[in-house]
Design a protein around this nucleic acid. Structure first.
Lengths: 202, 202
DNA sequence: CAACTAAGCGGACTTTACCCCGCTTCTATT
DNA sequence: AATAGAAGCGGGGTAAAGTCCGCTTAGTTG
């Protein structure tokens, strides 16, 4: 007979103290970011402030970038929720084209909001997998629903994803030298995206 | 009277020994890359192998990424030369649309050829300035010549640049786990680019 | 050709990401 | 409640980027 509801299958799940420590570390990281900015988040500093060992931080997040990936993840989930189940035009219910445009606007705003964290989430040796992103899937589905049929959808989807995410990850200097340029950059990119989609769908 | 042809103006130019050392360092870096790969290029290792001090390396290139930027620069110049004065359709003489497609193909091939160096040329705090890139200017000019008139050309040009350069810089895992995927990735992206341009221009 | 000066050089020093491995603590099981 | 064994923890150790500053040298000037 089965001594447990799940005899074996998943490899046991995270231990309670580990989960607690993860939350503690993320909260501490958010504090440091709020107070001193992304650049001041160091592994030793974070561990010390959280009252934990450095090894623990690495065990939880794997690398410095991993911390920022984890921080992004929560907001990213919320964002995807708005896309999958929120009000139109971002959520379901609007015309596919309108949803595409709305998605671009929302995504650009999201990235602008999370610029430094998103940047810091990059790992030198394992860059963000744009190809496998939720963005790419969403774009592909909406283009299909919009009746767009074109050759090489594979590549097009990858490239549109890069068109959306790339400029903010590759280009705009997030540091602190252009605090004024960026609001304009957001509008510029939103308008560009809308124009691009309009051309492609038409 | 003027004791020199250029009394003052440029702040003197690079000293001969400095130039010699720069060349030496670049050549040494190329050697290390050829023998052991990009990851094995370290500042200490490079300095030692070149028989120079570490300070010199930093003075010349500013940062590790700077070395790779310098390495790319030479090839990048040659590439731009082919674009500006080479045979059509990449060079002048072909129809703008054909040149756009050819540019994309050539650029993707170029980036694939230089993938790891281009990646390493990224600086965490000062990412590649896609917005100010030669690619962006070229795309803009060719779209204009092709008679494409659309709102928000500003943003569109930035995004098309990212569509071209982004996937290879952000996405494809350059490390060594996908040695087979990449030739296909090149074709996929080339076809995607052609389809994208065809849609936009039409 | 001698002196002068700005540019260049070297390498010790600091900081930080990341590894390692013996010890501790949790949790499932009896 | 006791126990086994896996998961987690800690912090010292390593490697590599980047900084600093006193010494050296190329190139200019008289």
């Amino acid at each position: 007979m089965a001594p447990s509801v799940v005899p074996f299958g998943r490899p046991r799940g995270e231990r309670a103290d580990a989960a607690r420590n993860r939350e503690l570390l993320l909260a501490t990281a958010r504090e440091i970011i709020a107070e001193h900015g992304v650049a001041k988040v160091t592994m030793d500093g974070l561990a010390e402030r959280a009252g934990l060992g450095k090894g623990t931080v690495f065990r939880r997040f794997g690398s410095r970038a991993g911390i920022f990936r984890a921080l992004l993840d929560a907001d990213e989930r919320a964002f995807q929720q708005r896309v999958l189940a929120g009000p139109p035009p971002l959520g379901p219910g609007a015309a596919p084209v309108d949803r595409l445009v709305a998605y671009g606007r929302a995504r650009i705003a999201f990235l602008l909001d999370h610029l430094d964290i998103a940047r810091a989430a990059h790992d030198r040796d394992r860059p963000v997998a744009v190809a496998a992103d939720a963005t790419q899937l969403h774009i592909r589905v909406l283009l299909d629903q919009a009746g767009v049929r074109m050759p090489a959808m594979e590549g097009v989807a990858v490239q549109l994803t890069a068109a959306l995410e790339g400029p903010l990850l590759l280009t705009l200097s997030a540091t602190e030298n252009l605090p004024l340029l960026e609001p304009d950059a957001g509008r510029m990119l939103c308008d560009g995206w809308a124009a691009l989609i309009e051309r492609i769908v038409r």
